[in-house]
Computed example of a mutant assay.
Amino acid sequence: MRMEELTWPEFESLKERVNTVIIPIGSVEAHGKHLPLGTDVFAPLEIARRVEERLRGLGVEVLTAPPVWYGHTFVLNVYPGTINVGGDAFKAYVREIIKEFAAEGFRRIILLNGHGGNYSPLVLAAEEVTVDFPETEIWLINWWLDFREDILSICSSQGHAGQDETSVMLAIRPELVKMENARGEKRSSKVRIIKKDIGKELFPEGVNDDPSLATVEKGEAILSVVSEKIARLIAGDT
């Protein structure tokens, strides 16, 4: 159930029987020359849709909130189209969103995150909210990271704009994927280096992996296993 499609009386009624809200969170940023800038939002939005569908089959209702499109993306800010929100501002903004849902009475708030740079600010935002709302449980789910073993049983590698993300986008929005431009390589550093243009070194052309082996079938398999496991986690704790 999409929150933005409800009237306020419908929302008020829903709160009486639904205690869980899913907030898809991502980023607008470069994903190589083959994926759209909104990849990190498209993925959690689709996963949330599939989670809700699976839960409905189990007799469990959840609410899906409008997504948070812009995120903290310092590293990829070297590429055009990346809209970076500073860590403090992003944390404060998301904290207020979480706080409002807690004040509305939701006892489980799931931050379904699609972007790695959001991780630390999201943890801090959640921690601050729980001080004022100790009865509220906040889950932070990073879909590509928390289910990495499952994804690597489907893909031979994963990474930013890599085989896994590209496969997922082929399954979700194939018309936006330009596979003729899908190329890249895996880059890493022995320690975390923070400097202004580090993105050019670790993410050449906005990619950190080889996306050329991505397929629709792999994307469907990833979406299926991730949504199934998240749905089971929610249903088992309801």
Results as ranks from 00 to 15, higher is better:
Met1Arg: 11
Met1Asn: 06
Glu4Arg: 04
Leu6Ser: 02
Ser13Trp: 02
Ser13Cys: 01
Lys15Asn: 11
Glu16Ser: 13
Pro24His: 13
Pro24Asn: 13
Ser27Met: 10
Val28Thr: 09
Val28Ile: 14
His31Trp: 08
Leu37Gly: 00
Pro44Leu: 06
Arg50Trp: 08
Arg54Tyr: 15
Leu55Asp: 06
Val60Leu: 10
Val62Thr: 11
Tyr70Gly: 00
Gly71Val: 07
His72Tyr: 14
Thr73Tyr: 00
Tyr79Cys: 04
Ile83Val: 11
Asn84Phe: 09
Gly87Pro: 01
Glu96Trp: 15
Glu96Asn: 15
Ile97His: 09
Ala102Asp: 03
Ala102Leu: 06
Ala103His: 11
Ala103Ser: 14
Gly105His: 05
Gly105Pro: 06
Arg108Phe: 12
Ile109Pro: 00
His115Ala: 10
Gly116Phe: 09
Pro121His: 09
Val123Thr: 04
Val123Cys: 04
Val123Lys: 03
Leu124Ile: 07
Ala126Cys: 11
Asp132Gly: 14
Glu135Trp: 06
Trp139His: 09
Ile141Trp: 00
Ile154Met: 08
Ser156Glu: 14
Ser156Trp: 02
Gly159Gln: 05
His160Cys: 12
Gln163Ile: 03
Gln163Val: 05
Gln163Pro: 09
Asp164Arg: 03
Ser167Gly: 12
Ala171Asp: 03
Ala171Gln: 06
Pro174Trp: 06
Val177Glu: 02
Met179Pro: 07
Val191Leu: 15
Val191Ala: 15
Arg192Val: 11
Ile194Cys: 08
Lys196Asn: 12
Asp197Ala: 10
Asp197Lys: 13
Pro204Cys: 01
Asp209His: 08
Asp210Tyr: 03
Leu213Arg: 12
Glu217Ser: 06
Lys218Met: 10
Gly219Arg: 01
Glu220Gly: 02
Ala221Tyr: 05
Ser224Thr: 10
Ser227Pro: 12
Ile230Trp: 03
Leu233Gly: 02
Ile234Glu: 01
Gly236Ala: 07
Gly236Pro: 10
